[in-house]
Computed example of a mutant assay.
Amino acid sequence: MTLEGAHPLDPPADPFEVAQAAAADIARLTGVERHDVAVTLGSGWGKAAELIGETVATIPATEVTGFSRPALEGHVGTLRSVRTPAGRHVLVIGARTHYYEGHGVRRVVHSVRTAAATGAKVMVLTNGAGGIKETWSAGQPVLISDHINLTADSPLEGATFIDLTDLYATRLRDIALSVDPTLDSGVYCQFRGPHYETPAEVQMAKAIGGDIVGMSTALEAIAARQAGMEILGFSLITNLAAGISPDPLSHEEVIEAGRMAEGRISALLAEVVGKL
């Protein structure tokens, strides 16, 4: 029982018990007992849900325990159960809570923990992000090979020690490369946001080994590893990062780059998911 105005994930609640309750809601509302793969659709990746397979059910995320209404344009706020031509069930998450919304890490990673509780063994995380490599261009999809967590936070609580070696699984990246051998890859840096990075911060990210800058994904990937899932990460380069590009950054630019690339990258994602 929670106090009036409290959220189901607020302490002293056990976030894993809340994820189990959410998974039970999804099974009841979709009629699908368990899912094999989960996909979180970030900015620009939304059409993939239509291409992965046959939609069995679409439900508002707010009807599932612990989920919040997305605060960001470009995120649709639904959960969808899709059956692939091979008969596997994919949970498509169009409801992402970003760290910068200030709700705490538990709510940021709740969708991932819920996906694991539905039975999913593979977590595909996608996002729209800024590129540091000057050879990249807006609308280009890249694989995430590793990440640097610059939020100064973690979804792990207490003395919980999780190995993050090969966090973004080489096996899954090889599958993606079998679909499109031209895919480049890079290290993703998650900043706290919601402001875009300064040119100096982008140069810092570059100096410490980063290739991509954004405001999501890393915390979710850590939670997915804790839950025992394999992780595949994709970034859509929506713009060159501050100082790499001479032009000021805007959210409208991100949305437009995603809209222009959506058909192509969604088809790529759907084909990759079909092989997982």
Rank of each mutant, 00 (worst) to 15 (best):
V90P: 08
L72Y: 00
H110F: 02
T114F: 06
E73R: 07
L72P: 02
V105Y: 01
G119V: 13
H75S: 04
H103G: 12
G87L: 02
V92K: 12
G74D: 05
R106S: 13
A116F: 00
V90L: 06
A117M: 12
V82M: 04
G104A: 06
V82T: 06
T114M: 05
G77Q: 08
V112W: 00
P85W: 00
V108I: 08
I93K: 02
V82A: 05
L72I: 07
A115I: 05
V90H: 10
R88Q: 15
T118R: 04
H110K: 03
H89T: 13
V124K: 00
R80T: 15
R83P: 11
A115V: 01
R96G: 14
H98W: 00
A86Q: 07
M123D: 00
H98P: 09
R88K: 15
T118Q: 03
A95I: 15
G87H: 01
R80I: 13
H98D: 08
R80A: 13
R107L: 15
L91A: 12
H89A: 14
A120L: 07
A71I: 11
R106A: 14
K121S: 13
A120D: 11
Y100A: 07
A116V: 06
A86P: 01
G94S: 11
H103S: 06
V122M: 04
T118M: 05
R113Y: 08
A116W: 00
R88F: 11
H89N: 15
R88C: 12
V124F: 09
T84N: 08
V105D: 13
V109Q: 03
M123F: 09
G77A: 11
V122I: 14
G119K: 00
V76L: 14
G87M: 02
S111N: 04
K121Q: 13
I93L: 14
A120E: 09
V92N: 13
T78Q: 12
T118L: 09
G77C: 09
S81D: 09
L72S: 02
S81H: 07
H75P: 01
V108A: 05
H103C: 01
H75I: 03
